[in-house]
Design a protein around this nucleic acid. Sequence first.
RNA 1: GCCGAAGUGGCGGAACGGCAGACGCGCCGCACUCAAAAUGCGGUGGGCAUUGCCCGUGUGGGUUCGAAUCCCACCUUCGGCACCA
Length: 807
Amino acid sequence: MDETYRPQEIEPRWQARWRAAKVGEVDLHGAQRPYYNLMMFPYPSAEGLHVGNVFAFTGADIHGRLRAMQGYDVFEPMGFDAFGIHSENTAIRLGIHPKELVAQNTQNFRRQLERLGGRFAWSHVLDSTDPAYYRWTQWIFLKLFEAGLAYRKEAPVNWCPSCRTVLADEQVISGRCERCDTVVEQRNLEQWFFKITAYADQLLDDLADLDWSEVIKTAQTNWIGRSQGTALTFSVLEPAHGQIEVFTTRPDTLYGVTFLTLAPSHPLALAIASAQCRPEVERYIAEAARREEAGSGERAKTGVQTGAFARHPLTQAPLPILVADYVLAGYGTGAVMGVPGHDQRDFAFAQAMGLPVTRVVAASPPDQGPLLEAYTDEAGVLVNSGPYDGMRVADAKQAITARAEEDGFGRAETTYHLRDWLISRQRYWGPPIPVVYCEACGVVGVPEAELPVLLPESEDFVPQGTGASPLASIPDFVNTRCPRCGGPARRETDVSDNFLCSSWYFLRYPSHPAVTDRPFDPDLVAKWLPVDSYIGGREHAVLHLLYTRFICFALHDLGWLPFAEPFRRFRAHGTITKGGAKMSKSRGNVVTPDALFDRYGADVTRLYLMFLGPYQEGGDYSDRNIEGVWRFLQRLYQLVTASRGGVENCQPQHLADLHRVVKRVGDDLEALKYNTAIAALMEYTTYLRQRQEPASQQELRTLTLLLAPLAPHLAEELWAKLGGAFSVHSQAFPTYDPAQLVARTATVVVQVDGRVRDRLTVPAGSGQQEVADRAMALPSVQKHLQGAQVERVVFVPDRLLNIVSAS
RNA sequence: GCCGAAGUGGCGGAACGGCAGACGCGCCGCACUCAAAAUGCGGUGGGCAUUGCCCGUGUGGGUUCGAAUCCCACCUUCGGCACCA
């Protein structure tokens, strides 16, 4: 009998059998214990699956397989997020139509995923570029539009000159395009937005109750950036032109205001400028617009006087109004009160512009010297603040806000870092935004019955940089009739952000492809959602995961979903690096799994990646360590094949070891600690191989079952060899009996003054007195005690005895 | 600057108040072999040493009978955000 492990022979054979037996498929309507095991919707890149994807999917698949063996009806779907700039940019570069490219890539991805041996429910596979799918993506847009949650406005937006489209705030990373790393510019454009800010509080407050990796919750908290403060209104004195509202978190420093600053795009910036100052202001605003790059970081402070003044609401003093680009247009009201004494940016600006600095908060004892930098510490009391002198900062914040409310020049207010989600893209490869512009009726949503608005087939898909989508140059697409009045109308030519496609895919999976008359079947949604487990990358903390929550909140409020939060549990897996760097095509360090599959098979590849380090931390890929896993599976294979047909039951003296490994592996798999689960299996395999008595069938079967989630093909093969019925993956995962874990003897560490001096083997559960008596008699203990008095004895039953001497 | 995570052998990592370095890689020795590969068995933190002992988890303090683990301060690295008033 050949006893060599040959994955290349085993793996295709079982994959074919699984396919035939439909082991990944679930009876969605009839399932007794539904468990939705979700992993992230992959973008099928031209390079194919890389080991980072394999790592991510394997960890999630192990979880699904464990749950399946625990008796759950696991639904583990897979699909392809194939719309979007990434696919489109690759298509442009290769000179292939994205449709063609996506078909190739999807096929390749699926081939690789099948080789990996995931228990995917392939009958539900989704493709976001399929009109049968994006019809409903457009439907979601319409529902939000009807609810007033999708709106058009002109605003300063992020423009990527390389991708030739606008981007959402979340897609700008340190001032650069998330996709192509080009520095992003600011442009004032009229665009479609989703009103995600309407849900800012809920997005933030619900986080407390979510079972999610902390790292993601923190990132979302920071991104939402809720800030409690006070809105204050200043009247413009000269020329008399209405009012300027500012937002501040430091109303206590109101007496320290020496000027007001407006963002260059503030509506009053030009309006209030005096005739004398107007040319300068115009020049500055124009320059700022040209220079302004989103998130370009701190620069030297510049600005200009408007010649206008505002009245201080309490002192009535005139305050000069300036325009400066250090004030962000998109945050708060686009205007700030300048408190150079207590804000570092205002201080730098005051220095640059020669504006006065007043101290209104002093630490105690009060230091009186001139301020050399802003005093931003909130520890201290007010000075130079009229009736508020001597008040502590926290109290003064309240008192001055209360005064503002009484006198009608302000109120407590909350602002957010989160902005509305810009969803228009001036690109070709996406779902067209289902809206038409009618001269008579204005903006009209495409009626539901007319969906999908098909993306027209066109060879001219390269964006021209005109600020319009390539769709704008297809007259047959643009020219249409108004669905309301039947008159001539133009279609919206922008497509929607790819993140809209991926913000609801998991709602569709159970219903796809059978349900065609609505996006998702309410019964299936009620049965399978929210998702029980979602495992994915942390890079989506403020993109996909935030957008998705928003879409579900909105659909919930509109009555389409019975829940608001889509994911009960989310776990962020780690990242696989190569040579310490993130894998990327530009670095040329991308490792694909095909060579590993060819040489070692899927099981070794799976185990190797899981053994690299803690799943939730990731690790650095190097092909050095893979041999160890290969050897382990060889030994395991030989152990099982060679010991077949031995005694049935585990001998009583070996039961504790058996139950211990069941507990270790079970607990570790549950906690996603796959590296230590594998280590435990390695130890147990070595133990069975080296033990005097040959392994019993019970022990071998248990070992095989424990292995099944991690190495599904090998486990299936060994299970069959042991005479088990197909399939190992529908067997119950082993459980342990805590009573069996109790060992008969224990090794107690004997310490003298906290240092290990000896070990004693004692009957389990021995009392302190008997252990101490034996320990005191040990020569090693006597030697270190050197006749000193024993001050106390610390005893941890079955583990440790520490004799503390008086010296 | 702010937020987060992490610093343990030659390397990946384990232990997360109680025997530091599980498991694996690499390396060394032995067996098998004409030989090599493969495989198996043993060893492998550093120092001193004849049983044994001392030192050792980024640095400095602290709590404790006992700290890699808890607390305080600092250093370094890696992520994320960054003129957010």
